[in-house]
Design a protein around this nucleic acid. Structure first.
Lengths: 126, 126, 126, 126
DNA sequence: GTGGTCTAGACCACC
DNA sequence: GTGGTCTAGACCACC
């Protein structure tokens, strides 16, 4: 994970971790790596990771069990809601760009279908 | 226009100006503001703007006429091609995000239609 | 029972035990658990419990009978007086907070009635 | 302001500052002392004060204006709501104590009235 | 080992 | 000057 310098790192981490939960990369009920582990892995201070998780806890996307660690929520409806929000944001971005380029909805839809079907199922690397 | 610090500014300007041409904000055959003007407006060094336009000239998206200034190409096919590339990139981004969220094509299409129809038609710009 | 660190523990125990007698949780004439038992239960040094009871004995709220153990007073008037003091302290605290919040007496009374009637009658204890 | 050691300092500050706003000690629209000033005054680290205000900002009880400082909200309805919550908490505490002492609502009300009318209007010190 | 809090101090943008 | 972020490192409770 790379950070851009215009947004606070902890906020970027909130977005990234939310995305991982929405995508199922961090499955419901699963244990997330410890604050210290993630800090080492991402090359940031544990306090910064802590701050990000304080927000995820507040959003109830993660729950903390004092000594056992931190876990992804098992609230399927909440995860579904987040997943929906993420999808909506993605759709809005496409709408903004496509309509800015003077595409019609039909053209935008056709293009979507074409790119969807032709997409790389096994991208070579990165 | 804001710049992120991870990519050279001139490259970000190439993208931005290309987008303006693709969207018709800079109409075909229209005169482009001078390097000095744009540099002042964007708060960057004129050399940086110059470098961006060197690239646009190379792509034939702009043409420089010694004394008269710099103009957007009138090559409709080229503009169309650029517009198409931009739309394709936007579609690909949506495909990547939506499929990452485990949406089906049908869901992605339905969401696109819904957000398209419900979008702000007269956002106050920003 | 939890202790805060700003006041001597034995003093906090005096308050707590007084409260129990005033509330009737430790009924008049009833035998009080031994110093050792209470110390173990509360996780404190027996000497600390002893000190608290020395004070309760002094206030005549408990009486020690050499061999039989320690008992809550049967002096109904004394218990009544203590109960009254406790109630008064509680009322004073409410008065201080409510008047600090610029409530009128009428508002404070109305709120009291409302909260009294709407309270949990069978809280699961905690 | 004194801190007890059982609750995080920043949380105690949230409570205290909320109380000040509810009581009108920090009037609506008024500027609050800077993070650095408050930290010095309260003898804590500026980061700790910052953390408390992050929460107040989140609750919209304060608003931050980048360079000018931080101000109490002018949202009268919000302040009213907070004031109401505080009063409710105070009433609940009284209800719990009084009912625990086996008082009837009539007794609790009578006691309230008595202590209200007899209260110290000009306490000598502290 | 786990998470949570706090301090000290640096640095940033914005004015 | 203002608020905001981040690091380094200590210390705590809980197991």
């Amino acid at each position: 994970m790379e950070f851009d310098s215009t947004t606070p790192i902890w906020l970027q981490m909130v977005s990234e971790f939310t995305r991982r939960i929405a995508r199922g990369e961090w499955p419901p009920g699963g244990r997330v790596a410890s604050v210290r582990e993630l800090a080492a892995e991402l090359g940031v201070n544990p306090n910064t990771v802590q701050r990000a998780f304080a927000e995820l806890d507040r959003l109830a996307l993660t729950v903390t069990e004092r000594t056992a660690g931190r876990f992804v929520t098992t609230d399927a409806a909440l995860i579904q809601r987040v997943r929906f929000d993420q999808a909506q944001d993605a759709a809005d971005a496409y709408v903004a760009l496509a309509s800015g380029l003077q595409l019609t909805l039909d053209e935008a839809t056709a293009l979507l279908t074409q790119r969807w079907n032709g997409r790389d199922h096994d991208r070579p690397h990165e």
